[in-house]
Amino acid sequence: MGTGLVAAFACVFLTAMVAYFLLTGGEAQLEDSPREAELRALRERKRTIYDNLRDLHFEFLAGKLGEEDYRRGRGALEQEAAQVTRKMEGRA
């Protein structure tokens, strides 16, 4: 009987703790509006292209890439960055 009573008190205490935790606290934050989310995605893409440019240049300095590969890679990335920038300007 004693053990059962202790167990019952423990159960009530646990439930009360959980209920208190559930019922207190603020609100969740919702994500960006679709337009802002799309702009953010383009900024992310632009950032990735810049990172790729940095990697490409570092590999060139390290002697891993030949002149031809470097120029081709850099040209393609610059073109990609220009496209993304145009898209961003169009949506701003």
Partner: peptide, 18 residues
């Protein structure tokens, strides 16, 4: 540093792009 070098190097094409 390498990132610094790379950043400087990358800055050139980026400016061209802009």
């Amino acid at each position: 540093a390498p990132g610094g070098i790379a950043a400087k190097a990358a800055a050139a094409p980026v400016e061209e792009v802009h």
